[in-house]
Computed example of a mutant assay.
Amino acid sequence: MILPYGRQTIEDDDIAAVVAALKADFLTTGPTVGAFETAFAAKVGAVHAVACSNGTAALHLAMLALELKPGDAVVVPAITFLATANCARYVGAEVVFADVDPTTGLMTPQTLRAALARATRPVRAVLPVHLRGEVCELPALAAIAAEAGAVLVEDAAHAVGSRATFDGQGNTVGDGRHGVMATFSFHPVKTIATAEGGMVATGDAALAERLRAFRSHGMTRPPGAEPWVYEMAEPGFNYRLPDVLCALGLSQLAKLDRFVARRRALADAYAEALAPLAPAVRLAARPPWSDPALHLLTVLIDFAAAGRTRAEVVEALRLRGVGSQVHYIPVHRQPYYAARYGDLDLPGADAWYARCLSLPLYPGMADEDVAKVAAALKDALS
């Protein structure tokens, strides 16, 4: 059996929670949705949390809630999943790609300023991505965004449970201290899973109201109206998350601290096991303020020095029972964006992509699996 780079951890109580939801009166649009939202908001320290069908829907809803439109621009790091950039295009806005630190993969204050300097349209939003669960330098990014007349929306798909300390003050990703919204994903490889699912956390009641309307076709119920009456001021989408999946989310959320602790313990074991492979292999860097709930265990490999291509290493690992993945191909290199914005020079993103490889990391791994991965990587590079 191959160790995958990530996978869900589903236990008997998770199954029982789903079975109970299947036996309840509501399979969707029922009370379990609100219960999951309330519990999630409390966990991350948010005022409001709005559940939706997946992490991409969460990003799209955030752009809709901000009323972005054609002629506006959004700054997105070049190293991220496609959805972070695509959500701007869904509403007709243009994407301005920011470079990243080549050792962390994160947008930095310097790369944000450089992106803003290249913008040819008003930038309405900045979307830092907490890649791998590592937290971006939020206070500085928020201040720079505000100077440009933009708001900060955190793409926290990787960062459920991540924390950071700025100026001696700790905060949890999603608590709203720096961003107007934070979007999360509950895909099976993420820290907690609902099969598919997403959440938008915000401290703004008006934004929360718009998010809820847009996730359900744009429908609202006028105050005092009859129970069957609804109005649609503008079209929305069917981005609802069913009660059955929210029941799974509630069960998983109760285990978040345990899952995070296990991921951190495995990451510490990796640091020790991979140390003999330095300098050809090193763990992606951790910013000093970041206290991550690691979603990915990413190493940076000098493939040229090892005399191996990444494809050769990936195949050699596979033959030894170890799965791996690449996070990510720079989005500005994708054919659609390259045709739209040209050949951008973002050396940090290119350097990250040239070296990155994600190794297995999930709570169900055994301690000896880390040693197996390290030995397989050593063999693959030999």
Rank of each mutant, 00 (worst) to 15 (best):
M1L: 14
P4Q: 01
R7Y: 03
T9L: 15
I10R: 13
E11S: 12
I15D: 05
I15L: 15
L27T: 10
L27F: 14
G30L: 06
T32C: 08
G34A: 07
A35R: 14
A39P: 11
A42S: 13
V44A: 05
V47Q: 13
A51E: 05
A57S: 14
L59C: 11
L59M: 13
G71M: 04
A73C: 08
V75I: 12
A78L: 09
T80K: 04
A83F: 03
T84F: 05
A85V: 02
A88H: 09
V91S: 06
V91C: 04
G92N: 13
A93C: 07
D99P: 12
T103Y: 13
T103V: 14
M107Y: 10
R113T: 14
A115S: 01
L127S: 01
V129P: 05
L131F: 10
R132N: 03
C136L: 04
C136M: 02
C136H: 04
P139V: 04
P139M: 00
I144S: 10
L152W: 06
A156R: 03
T165P: 01
F166Y: 15
G170C: 05
N171L: 12
G174Q: 07
G179N: 09
V180W: 00
V180A: 10
F186T: 07
H187F: 14
V189Q: 12
K190V: 08
I192D: 01
A193D: 13
E196P: 00
V200L: 11
V200P: 06
A201F: 11
D204R: 15
R210A: 15
H217Q: 14
G218S: 03
M219A: 12
R221L: 00
E226P: 07
E226Y: 07
V229P: 00
M232C: 13
E234L: 12
G236K: 01
L241K: 00
D243C: 11
L245M: 06
L248G: 10
K255P: 00
V260D: 01
R263M: 08
A265H: 12
L266Q: 12
D268L: 15
A269C: 09
A271I: 09
A278Q: 11
A278V: 09
A284E: 05
A285M: 07
R286A: 11
R286S: 12
P287Y: 06
S290R: 03
L294G: 00
H295L: 10
L296R: 00
L297I: 06
V299Q: 05
L300A: 01
A304Y: 06
A305W: 02
A305E: 13
R310T: 04
R320Y: 01
S324P: 11
Q325L: 14
V326C: 08
Y328I: 02
I329K: 06
P330L: 03
Q334N: 08
Q334M: 06
Y336I: 10
Y336P: 00
D343C: 04
D343M: 01
D345P: 03
R355V: 04
L357C: 02
L359N: 07
L359C: 11
P363E: 07
E368R: 15
K372A: 09
A374Y: 02
A375F: 07
A375E: 11
A376V: 00
L377V: 10
